[in-house]
């Protein structure tokens, strides 16, 4: 494993899946975890009742989790397709299993 930028190749994956300008992609990104749920989840795990979380911070955590989850899927697929998640190989009916997640989880958690 390259120690310095372990996820360099993979990190770019979710946001550059085709050559469209980034702006358009962001607007097209309809599927995301609602900020209200993010806020509830974060507050659920806070230890101190007095701690508050700013709206911008919630939005950023939302992006963080979005990247985390997307990255998990891309890495799992990448693993099954020998490093290229888009490979048009014969295994187009690929089913992601728990074992695929188990394989990529340790490095994923180190990178996030």
């Amino acid at each position: 494993m390259p120690p310095k930028h372990p996820s360099k190749a993979n990190e770019e994956v979710p946001s550059h899946r085709n050559d469209e300008p980034k702006k358009i992609q962001e607007e097209e990104r309809k599927v995301k975890i609602p900020p209200e749920l993010i806020a509830k989840l974060v507050k659920n795990f806070l230890e101190d009742e007095g701690t508050k979380v700013s709206g911008a911070a919630i939005k950023t955590v939302g992006e963080y989790m979005h990247l985390f989850l997307t990255e998990a899927v891309y890495r799992a697929v990448s693993d099954r397709r020998d490093g290229d998640p888009w490979a048009k190989t014969t295994n187009s009916g690929l089913m992601l299993e728990v074992e695929d997640l188990e394989k990529i989880a340790p490095q994923l958690l180190l990178d996030f």
Binding site: P14, R17, V31, K32, I33, H66, L69, T70, V73, Y74, A76, V77, P85, W86, S92, G93, L94, M95, L96, E97, V98, D100, L101
Partner: peptide, 19 residues
């Protein structure tokens, strides 16, 4: 689940409910 389905659509794969 929704997010995974969206990502899977782009990559032409499927994810098991267990995943």
């Amino acid at each position: 689940g929704k997010l995974v389905d969206d990502a899977c659509l782009d990559l032409n794969v499927n994810a098991t409910p267990q995943f």
